[in-house]
Design a protein around this nucleic acid. Sequence first.
DNA 1: TGTACATCAGTGAACGCGCGTTCACTGATGTAC
DNA 2: TGTACATCAGTGAACGCGCGTTCACTGATGTAC
Lengths: 210, 210
Amino acid sequence: MSLRLGDTRQRIKNEATRLFVEHGVADVSVRDIAQAVGMKAPNLYAHFRSRDDLVNELFVEGYATYGKLLAEAAASAADFPSRLEAMLRLICRLHDEDIVRFRFLLLARHGSLAKLPPNHPYNPIDTLQRIIKAAMDRGEIPARDPALITAMLVGAVVQTATFVLYGRIPTPMTDLADTLVTACEGLVLYGGLGNLPCPMQRSHHATNTT
Amino acid sequence: MSLRLGDTRQRIKNEATRLFVEHGVADVSVRDIAQAVGMKAPNLYAHFRSRDDLVNELFVEGYATYGKLLAEAAASAADFPSRLEAMLRLICRLHDEDIVRFRFLLLARHGSLAKLPPNHPYNPIDTLQRIIKAAMDRGEIPARDPALITAMLVGAVVQTATFVLYGRIPTPMTDLADTLVTACEGLVLYGGLGNLPCPMQRSHHATNTT
DNA sequence: TGTACATCAGTGAACGCGCGTTCACTGATGTAC
DNA sequence: TGTACATCAGTGAACGCGCGTTCACTGATGTAC
């Protein structure tokens, strides 16, 4: 019974995620989700308190999961370029491994619902900004506005995923990882550190692609 | 009369844009817009065929206007770094000069409506990608996937505007222009051209900050 | 100058629709004796 | 083994609501004679 319940709950979450990605979060009704799962709308309320609750649970869960993995990836390396590379490669892998989930998070970022509780420990944006700030303080990378550099890095990755989503880039993210790493390094390192060698030296040398 | 009509039409557009930015395009009703303008909802239909028409007109108009200005800015310079710089500085200026309009375009990008006619001559994304492709073909910048580099540049700028919108970066875009230019140059130039000097030489020298 | 008419921005009332949600009910299944 | 009962996923019908939109109408204003 409770096994059955958990099973149905998960099926609802999966179908809802799929539909949200396919049609947009706003354009999927409770009846649509129920139909995809093979039940009638009222029964969804045996599993979720409301439609908003379902959306929120999907968002917070996914955001926290990815956030935790990103924080771990960042912590697994010592110098900044290696941290950045580890995070970027992880993101590409997560994208390709579960495209639907990744895209749901991409699309659900906006909208009045689906807000992560503030100061969430695994907010990936905060994690990234903290790492950047630390690297600047240590003089590893040019000291600029950490929030601005964070925005640019996040945007570069997110917009890439969006281009892949809309078919403008017809490639798995994993195949883009090398270029993403190089370009993001350039974004962070270039131009600010006087006679900064180019590319910057690091613990294990960077992979540069064409 | 026809003057009066045009006037009212413009007021509707202004108020609608403002409300869309403030509450999100999906969460503003025809009645909300009418109230803001100081009229009743049905009268909006004397000026626009439908709500969708209004949204679409705002989007296409804004997108085309900005797209045209960007194309002109790009054409005003000869080498790639100067073109990129001109476009970035223009974007910052356009943002600060009419924040509401800029943000409406930012928010309206998504959504099933508000699609620019395909192959629109002033689609700014296409313009940028064409310029990047040309610079790669001429060997001005490292040859990588033009769509990917385009995505990263667009993302870097758009996400920055989003951070400003949500108050994560409490600064006019114009104040960020220098860093944006430097970082975007790094994104494009870094790591791919063998012993590329750093920063790259150009016709009129780049402005590096910090 | 006064009167009749045309124009047209704007309105009140009402429409059908799809939405999220509630609630009393069903009916299959597991359990106790 | 048979019977009575508890559990609980799932359903049919209906709710109130706000939405975009329509339509017959108003009433101020400009114009012709």
